[in-house]
C-alpha cells in the first residue's frame, strides 16, 4: 500500500487537531502545537494517541523532542511509516 506523502499527513494531522481543540482555529503546517494553539500537556498526549491510531503507529516520545509545528510532526509520522 502506498505510504501517504507529507501533505496528506499534514491534512490528517490538522483534521485531528480540529477535533482536539474546543474552538475553531486557523491551522497550517507552520502552526506551532503549543506556542500557537496553547495545547496543555495532557491534550498533547491525547492528540498524539489519536495520531498513532490514525496511522497505526507507536510514537516514542523521544522522537518528538524537536517537534514544534504540525509540519515537524508530519515528518516524524512520515519517517515512522517509511520504517
Amino acid at each position: 500500500m502506498a505510504k501517504p506523502d507529507h501533505h496528506t499527513i499534514v491534512a490528517a494531522l490538522i483534521e485531528l487537531l480540529h477535533k482536539t481543540l474546543d474552538q475553531p482555529r486557523e491551522i497550517g503546517p507552520d502552526t506551532a502545537l503549543i506556542a500557537d494553539l496553547g495545547l496543555e500537556s495532557i491534550q498533547v498526549i491525547e492528540y498524539l494517541c489519536e495520531v498513532e491510531d490514525r496511522f497505526d503507529l507507536a510514537i516514542d516520545e523521544d522522537k518528538l523532542a524537536d517537534v514544534r509545528t504540525v509540519g515537524d510532526l508530519a515528518e516524524v509520522v512520515r519517517a515512522l511509516l517509511r520504517n
Partner: peptide
C-alpha cells in the same frame, strides 16, 4: 527508555 503513552484507563489503547 522509549516511552509510549496510551489514553487514560484505556485497555484497548
Amino acid at each position: 527508555a522509549d516511552i509510549f503513552r496510551f489514553k487514560h484507563n484505556d485497555p484497548d489503547g
